[in-house]
């Protein structure tokens, strides 16, 4: 784990609520968006993410993070979602739900499962030039919408539309890759 993450997590272990709050502010909505693509339900997703936050606070000394805090968050939500689906006897063999979640999470991509990201990256390459660029800047470089707008000299609204379209297009492409497009 990187030193920065280690320090942040040490603060959580010590019971530093301000640090905990800033983690909450940073990740709550993103994680809910991620969970929603598994559960298709706003409240269940919010409950699940809140449970994780409570768990992390109560068991901080037992939580063992090897990668990064961010990766830990997404991986934990993924596990909790998969457990939820297990009770319903629903499987996600080809990671369709996961890929959808990754696209919905509106976060940079570095912390997701690299095996599955390859599929997404290949699909980004096939997007129209500017759309691909905008999506890449957002998800790979981790820039904000404002920063992208400034860099490319376009409006923030254009960035938003481009991102939304990119996500839609990517979903279609991913379905295609997984052999499901013929169904649409």
């Amino acid at each position: 784990m990187r030193i920065e993450d280690r320090i942040i997590f040490n603060e959580i272990k010590k019971g530093n609520k301000e640090v905990y709050r800033s983690l909450f502010d940073e990740y709550y909505e993103k994680l809910v968006a991620f969970a929603k693509s598994y559960l298709f339900d706003q409240y269940e997703s919010e409950d699940l993410v809140q449970d994780l936050f409570v768990y992390m606070w109560e068991h901080a000394t037992k939580v063992n993070i090897t990668t990064s805090i961010k990766a830990y968050f997404y991986q934990s939500i993924r596990n909790r979602c998969i457990n939820h689906l297990k009770a319903l006897k629903v499987k996600d063999k080809n990671h369709l739900l996961y890929m959808d979640g990754v696209l919905q999470a509106d976060d940079d991509l570095q912390h997701f499962d690299p095996k599955i990201l390859t599929d997404i990256m290949l699909s980004i390459d096939e997007l129209p030039e500017q759309m691909g660029k905008v999506f890449r800047m957002k998800t790979v470089d981790g820039l904000s919408r404002d920063q992208i707008a400034e860099k490319l000299d376009i409006s923030v609204n254009t960035v938003k539309t481009q991102l939304q379209r990119a996500r839609q297009k990517l979903k279609e492409k991913l379905l295609h890759r997984t052999g499901l497009l013929f169904l649409l």
């Binding site: 990187r2 030193i3 920065e4 993450d5 320090i7 942040i8 603060e11 530093n16 301000e18 640090v19 709050r21 800033s22 983690l23 502010d25 940073e26 990740y27």
Partner: peptide, 13 residues
């Protein structure tokens, strides 16, 4: 420091 934590981890240090 903590408020800066997540947004700019290096700044935190």
């Amino acid at each position: 420091a903590s408020i800066a934590a997540v947004i700019a981890v290096t700044a935190l240090l």
